[in-house]
Design a protein around this nucleic acid. Structure first.
Lengths: 195, 195
DNA sequence: TATCAACTGTTAGTCAGTAACACTTTGTCC
DNA sequence: GGACAAAGTGTTACTGACTAACAGTTGATA
């Protein structure tokens, strides 16, 4: 699972990847996503057009970061067996968000704002949401040694909906509100859908 | 709200639009979405490349149909004032789906399958989901003469999640199950998220 | 050091989507 | 019925995302 070997080659690759991603985000935030071309990003990162696409399958992919998913899966697996699936997701997601906010708050805010204000990226984000939903449902089923049921999938979808609503509200308020609290309120709303 | 005038011009436009859409779906289903070019669709419909984009803003847009949205909004507005928001959405959505299934079942199945199996279209569908969520929340708020609250947005998101899970399950089972029943089960799951 | 594999750049191509301009058709006003 | 403005369409040419092929370079390895 860990990197094969910290050889010179691997180091260079990691550095190049990071450079491309950082320059891309910088240019997107400065000039807008659509107004930034892949050629500009590649030039800024000191690589060619083709190398960009060897590191990222598309211009959209450079924005997303799946690094949070494993964190959440771990948190789900770590919940006590006595909790029901909704409580599990609530604790795991709120804790996960809290942790990310503690270290990456500004970056998360900037990136989420970028995604929400760029139509092409919004679509991409939701496509990821589909994968994340499966991830959640799988993790919940594995924790209970059961199968992925229809109800579990609905639960995972609903939670993602609440999470995305919380993120949207957070960005619309320019990050003034506390994101973990907003997410928690989202779970409250889920728990009392008929009010 | 109705068409401005049934002049010759409007008739031709409607016919062209329909021709483009039908040829596009036919070609997508026959050869796949990615393997079908806009030029092919335009040629099949007897128009030029440019005319295609004058009728549809993108290749993806030709697949989606927003015709169901107004139906749902009407159904939401028509619910008795005594019902809570979740019950309103449940009745409206299940009735709407039932109506669509009664008339368009095969087309809906084919189109949904196409969307779910084409990554580019999946993203688009979810982007629409974002707009639909606002639509639902607005309709609910308008019905209650209130504002769009955070809880209403979460509710709308959760319902859309359940709906999309039902659609996915329906397509995965090749349309054997009854879609309205699946959607109803989705609402059941929403009403008992902690089980 | 010699060799092989991996990495990269160059070139040239496809396809989605846009802009500009000229041409045809339709609705309308005398 | 004919002139005129507006709407609709096709042609051409362009940008930008993305891919395939090939050649050159650089890191790993013996």
């Amino acid at each position: 699972m860990s990197s094969p070997a910290p050889g010179l080659r691997e180091q260079r690759k990691a550095r190049t990847r990071k450079a491309i991603q950082e320059h891309a985000l910088r240019l997107f935030l400065a000039n807008g996503y659509d107004a930034t071309t892949v050629d500009q990003i590649a030039s800024a990162a000191g690589v060619s057009h083709m190398t960009f696409f060897r590191y990222f399958p598309s211009k959209e992919a450079v924005v997303e970061n799946d690094e949070y998913d494993p964190l959440l899966v771990d948190l789900i697996a770590a919940q006590p067996a006595s909790l029901g699936p909704l409580a599990v997701l609530r604790t795991a997601v709120v804790d996960g968000i809290r942790e990310v906010c503690a270290t990456d708050r500004e970056a998360l805010l900037a990136r989420t704002r970028l995604v929400l204000t760029t139509p092409a990226l919004r679509g991409r984000q939701w496509r990821n949401g589909d994968a994340t939903q499966r991830l959640f449902a799988d993790a919940l089923a594995a924790r209970a040694d059961g199968e992925v049921t229809f109800a579990l999938r609905v639960l995972a979808s609903a939670v993602l909906g609440a999470l995305s609503t919380a993120l949207t509200t957070w960005v619309e308020g320019d990050g003034v509100e506390d994101l973990p609290s907003l997410v928690d309120r989202g779970f409250d709303a889920l728990a009392h859908l008929d009010s």
